[in-house]
Design a protein around this nucleic acid. Structure first.
Length: 289
DNA sequence: CTTTTCTCCTGTATGC
DNA sequence: TGCATACAGGAGAAAA
């Protein structure tokens, strides 16, 4: 399930294999992959043809290619992988994947680029860039902990005023981006904080610790090529990451905590699952009123 | 405004 | 064996 480290691995792959090339033809299949493009997928494809790819950029879980049209106009081609999206660089003769949603061929020939997504939570969009160089639909996404614009002190101040669970805040991409369910659970385990603790009830140093750990666990995962659990997440070259061997909380229900040996528990949270250590991460007292 | 819930999708695992 | 159900979950819309 692609979170920041996995998306960064894909971005690097795009930088290596797609940047510097010119799109010859684009094709979108189905109505969902071309997001919010009212003129439709055929129009979107036509607009991409002849564009030169200048850069592959990322903020949080959003990826975009900086395109330059023949007339010099720059736009961003956004790609969000959702939870099962893949960008594959392949020879054009490669058999079509079952859930192939888009393909791009280039003026210099093979390889081509494909967007494959089983669950179609992901999608692509063409958008204008803001003066800061971010596509407009991405402008509301906060900087992620690995970019220069990330201001952790400001994030801590905003979190401190929130009357919501700290895990909910970690997952709020408008507060800090790039963190998903896996790395949220890992960061909370490392910080020894239960995700149901209210932001406003935690001290600023505790909030700082949670964010520090989120940054560190994502950096560690990036060093190992990202996390993967099944064949769904594959990087741009088709190779899976393997950080899942290093997880301490996520998916570890019933296994002993690597710090204290207490069995890791699973709890329902926001219509999904949270994993934590009952001893290291005690639940907050129930709110009442 | 802030906060929470719902919805989109399909392959895999589990239960009867 | 077959069918029904639960689950995975990012993010934006909708609701509260």
């Amino acid at each position: 399930m692609p979170e920041l480290p996995e998306v960064e691995v894909v971005r690097r792959g795009l930088a290596d294999h797609v940047v510097g090339r010119t799109i010859e033809r684009a094709e979108f299949r189905g109505a969902r992959v071309a997001r919010r493009h009212l003129p439709g997928p055929l129009d979107l494809a036509a607009r991409l043809e002849g564009n030169h790819i200048q850069e592959a950029r990322r903020r949080g879980k959003y990826l975009w290619l900086v395109l330059r049209a023949p007339d010099g106009h720059q736009q961003g081609l956004i790609a969000h992988l959702g939870m099962s999206g893949q960008l594959l660089v392949e020879p054009s003769e490669a058999p079509e994947e079952k859930h192939l949603h888009a393909r791009f061929t280039f003026a210099d020939g093979d390889p081509e680029l494909r967007f494959v997504d089983q669950r179609t939570f992901g999608g692509m969009a063409l958008a204008e860039l803001t003066p800061e160089g971010v596509p407009e639909p991405v402008a509301h996404i906060a900087p992620d902990p690995l970019e220069a614009a990330y201001d952790q002190a400001a994030v801590v101040r905003r979190m401190k005023t929130r009357d919501s669970a700290v895990k909910r805040a970690l997952l709020d991409q408008s507060l800090v981006s790039g963190v998903g369910n896996i790395y949220a659970d890992e960061a909370l385990w490392r910080a020894q904080v239960h995700g149901e603790r209210l932001c406003s009830s935690l001290t600023k140093p505790a909030l700082r610790r949670v964010l520090d750990h989120a940054r560190e666990v994502m950096l560690a995962a990036l060093g190992e090529g990202g996390t993967s659990f099944d064949a769904l997440y594959v990087n741009v070259n088709g190779a899976s990451g393997y950080f899942d061997r290093s997880l301490h909380a996520y998916g570890q229900e019933g296994r002993p905590c690597d710090r204290c040996g207490t069995l890791i528990r699973r709890e329902a949270f926001m219509n999904r699952s949270s994993f934590s250590c009952p001893h290291c991460q005690p639940r907050p007292r129930l709110r009442h009123g």
